[in-house]
Design a binder for these strands. Structure first.
Lengths: 100, 100, 100, 100
DNA sequence: TAAGCATTGTCACCCC
DNA sequence: GGGGTGACAATGCTTA
């Protein structure tokens, strides 16, 4: 029962923000606003790019390409690129495990 | 049964690309390359932005914010923005219907 | 506005279960109980196996193996097995796209 | 800098496996094979069960149930079961503390 | 105990 | 419109 109140604190953060500073105009409020703004801006850009990608696929289809095959092709190219990178990672892991 | 020959053709595309033109140096091959390039480029940019977003969340955590709450907040703002937009759209429809 | 009530019906299911039959003892209630039981049983078995896997990793560590490397090894084996399978899939896709 | 030699050794394991014994036919090689086999077997079974679970959900949908609700229901039951168990554990602790 | 990672669940998109 | 598939988010485990 007596599990010490631990006021306004959870395990997710090193030093939870002070509630007072979160009031309008407080320092924490300013930082929060900045963070939200940046995230929303970045998500906007990300969505725009997603739209662009869709449009390219659209164009591909109009040009007579089979998008299913096209997606498969791009996926394979992506994986092959990733595999080289992963190979290096594995090498590192092995080196580490062998104490090199 | 009678699945009419329609060789080299499926229903996904208006005019399937000519296989001859897909040979190296053909016109279709060039267009394909262009399409693949653009998609891969866009996906690269998209991944970069995703990384940026993660970094901002990282920073938020270091500043003492609870990212779970933060994500929820951003989700709510997004939905409310969408609703506002939809409301204005409907307004326009009504205005139009009334000849305004 | 007048978007026809469409009583007790949503788009998620072909023929949504009758509310009356869901009352205790109803036919639908019996089926629901059966479904929940089976899922819970299967999830229990799944959790047990997950525990077994952890124990084997535990044993491996006690035997002096590096689990990080071990996991990497198993991942690679899995991927290589999957790749052959995927190759067949791709072949099918291509065949389909070419109308074969 | 002074990262004490400790060649072929890292802190992850009590007694790192002898590299000689890892050669084909060595004792460690046999144990490694056994470990990999068991893990792969268990993971196979786990995947099979996951497939079974999906099939039950599939069947549920065909029977007119809303899988989103169904998943939520099962999640709640699981949590409540865990809470009950925890409660009994605490009870035991208290009993023990009182010498019962 | 925190950080990275792997798995699992959810959601949206695409095709049929 | 419904089902299947792929991306994204969230949670839990593993290690440093």
């Amino acid at each position: 029962m007596n599990q010490t109140a631990s006021v306004g604190h959870n395990s997710r953060s090193p030093k939870p923000v002070d509630r007072e500073e979160l009031r309008v105009g407080g320092a924490a409020a300013d930082r929060l606003r900045s963070i939200v703004d940046r995230i929303e801006r970045l998500e906007g850009e990300k969505a725009d790019i997603a739209t662009d990608i869709k449009e390219v696929y659209q164009e591909a289809k109009s040009s007579g390409f089979d998008n299913k095959v096209l997606r498969e092709l791009i996926k394979i190219r992506k994986r092959e690129a990733a595999e080289q990178e992963e190979f290096e990672t594995i090498l590192d892991v092995y080196r580490n495990a062998l104490g090199m």
